[in-house]
């Protein structure tokens, strides 16, 4: 077979942006942006090089954590975090269920739907830490403000997913139950609950996990929990205690991820 008559060249045609001008413009724009962005960084390299030595100490602290010398602070911070996590998740779930049902278009009248959806939107668009700042200003320092923050964030998270789930839930099942002459409550109980419940349990566990991680953060602005302890440890340059706290957080997250994985498998 003679291959000599065939072309010796082939170029891969562009896959996403077909117009060559646009492609060039986009890559130029990307380069210009990177140059500008990196150029506007003001890095004090002297400070960084001093910091590297500190970084080394932190890594050492992480490898040789000190659980003992700040034990009391760690224990009280941890108990605040854990209790805050549990109570806020439970309260959050309890409130998010009616709001989630209210925010499902196929179940509720329009005005209720709009009110519930806007509660969700407010809760979702504000970061936990910003909510915490306000709640600390209103309710004073301590885990109670943290509890309220996490509960509020849970509502936005769970109610949204629950509402989307209900809207996606099979409408034929809904109609079948409605056709038997069931009341609104019976409809929720027989058509919606069985379809949505397993996922709700899974999501609740997932949120429990998130709430614990967040509880480690909101302490920075005074809402109690392990975050406050960590903040103090870092401020005092006690990297071995900080390392210990971080390892505890990682361990708890790992355990809870593992457990919630098991529970989710068991529920579904």
């Amino acid at each position: 077979m003679s291959a000599l008559n065939y072309p010796r060249h082939w170029k891969r045609p562009p896959q996403i942006i077909h117009h060559p001008g646009w492609r060039r413009a986009l890559s130029v724009a990307a380069v210009v942006y990177l140059v500008l962005a990196i150029g506007s960084l003001e890095v004090d390299w002297q400070r960084v090089s001093i910091g590297l030595e500190r970084g080394q100490r932190f890594v050492m602290g992480f490898l040789q954590p000190d659980f003992v010398s700040r034990q009391r602070d760690i224990v009280s911070g941890l108990s605040e975090s854990l209790t805050m996590t549990l109570t806020s998740t439970v309260v959050g779930i309890l409130i998010s269920i009616p709001i989630g049902i209210g925010a499902a278009r196929n179940l509720t009248p329009r005005p209720v739907y709009l009110i519930c959806r806007s509660i969700i939107a407010v809760s979702r668009s504000l970061q936990e830490i910003i909510i915490a700042i306000f709640l600390v200003a209103m309710f004073g320092f301590g885990p109670f403000a943290g509890f309220l923050t996490l509960a509020f964030a849970t509502i936005g998270f769970l109610a949204k997913l629950l509402a989307d789930d209900i809207e996606e839930a099979s409408s034929t099942q809904l109609e079948a139950i409605r056709a038997t002459g069931a009341s609104w409550w019976q409809m929720i109980n027989y058509a919606v609950e069985p379809q949505v419940l397993p996922r709700l349990i899974g999501l609740s566990l997932y949120r429990l996990d998130i709430n614990f991680r967040e509880s480690a953060v909101i302490g920075i602005v005074g809402a109690g929990g392990i975050g406050a302890t960590l903040n103090t440890a870092i401020d005092r340059y006690e990297y071995d205690s900080a390392g210990a706290i971080l390892l505890i957080i990682i361990a708890i997250v790992m355990v809870s991820e593992y457990v919630s994985g098991l529970v989710r498998k068991w529920v579904q």
């Binding site: 003001e42 890095v43 590297l52 960590l230 971080l246 997250v253």
Partner: peptide, 24 residues
């Protein structure tokens, strides 16, 4: 897991202590 369980705010807290405040 380490990267995921520690919030970016905590990473920032550590890094500000280590390499100083700023964008870096």
């Amino acid at each position: 897991v380490t990267s995921r369980s520690i919030n970016s705010l905590i990473w920032a807290l550590l890094l500000v202590a280590v390499i100083g405040p700023g964008l870096l």
